[in-house]
């Protein structure tokens, strides 16, 4: 079954993914610059990578 720790982080990642679907199609539709959707998606991905770094920190210890 799912552990509490996992559930908490799974929900956080799900929120980041949902934001990545919603924000570019709503708030950023008219921001035609590199710091619009382009940067937003890169930043969100970096956040997810850092989240994974944290979740897996105790693996194998």
């Amino acid at each position: 079954m799912v552990l509490k720790f996992e559930l908490k982080w799974a929900l956080i990642i799900l929120c980041i993914v949902l934001l990545s679907l919603i924000i570019p199609f709503t708030l950023l539709t008219n921001l035609a610059t590199w710091y619009g959707s382009f940067l937003f998606w890169i930043v969100m991905t970096v956040v997810v990578i850092c989240t994974n770094l944290y979740i897996t920190k105790d693996w194998g210890k």
Binding site: S37, F38, V48, N52
Partner: peptide
């Protein structure tokens, strides 16, 4: 355009599934 980046990066976020299914 940039939608291609979004689609491919959201796939990459999906690799987080491995953090739960991998072990």
């Amino acid at each position: 355009g940039v939608g291609a980046l979004g689609f491919e990066l959201i796939y990459l976020m999906g690799v987080s599934l491995v953090a739960f299914f991998g072990p």
